[in-house]
Design a protein around this nucleic acid. Sequence first.
DNA 1: ACCCAGGGTCATA
DNA 2: TATGACCATGGG
Length: 228
Amino acid sequence: MSIAAPDATCLYTQLYHAYGDQRWWPGDSPAEVVLGAVLTQNTVWANAAQAIGRLKAAGLDSFERLLAAPEDRVKACIRPAGCYNVKYGRLMNLLRLVVDQGGLCALGTLTTEECRTLLLSVKGIGPETADCILLYALGKRVFVVDRYTRRLLVRLGHDWARESSYDTVQSWFSQGLGTDPQVYNECHALIVQHGKAHCRATPRCYGCPMARSCVTAQTPAPSDATSA
DNA sequence: ACCCAGGGTCATA
DNA sequence: TATGACCATGGG
């Protein structure tokens, strides 16, 4: 008889108990969240942060200036984030959309669905990047699923999370976390905090505060109504 | 000298 | 549709 894998609420409760308030996203403004969301794609945050620091130091502190700046100049700033040619294109695509919509505030007046659809229509913006922007820049109630999230679920016994679709994992949280947007914000932040603490290659979650203490009724994977 | 990172797109089979 | 290559710098 093995320990049941925790449900979403239990997961959140235990993480909160272990790490406390996170107050995320790292960044000074919604605009920085947008930049960071792209720059941190497949990249450790420290490198993305360095790129943002360079942009600010270069005076490229608004979307309009970034769009108007010479390509080489922007690329030189974001180089530390890696894949800078690709990310340059993605950033410009995204900033163009935001500006065309009248800025971040105007974008935020749209419904979550409308907003998400718009973001996903941008080449280079996938579900995670879009959801980061929705949650941390626009305050929408969406759960962000990243690499840390899947890895933690699998380590806690939710084997289904390894190969499930983004939407499936996301809805597992959405159905378990209630309706408070702040909880979505905190929960993802806590997962990242935990992931960093257990950085690389811990095959099992030994030392994980949740592995032993969080025993509840096991929630199954949501039935895959979404796929094919 | 490898391996990987808070993804996403595109080309193959 | 399902894998794999690719982008690319910086730290373990």
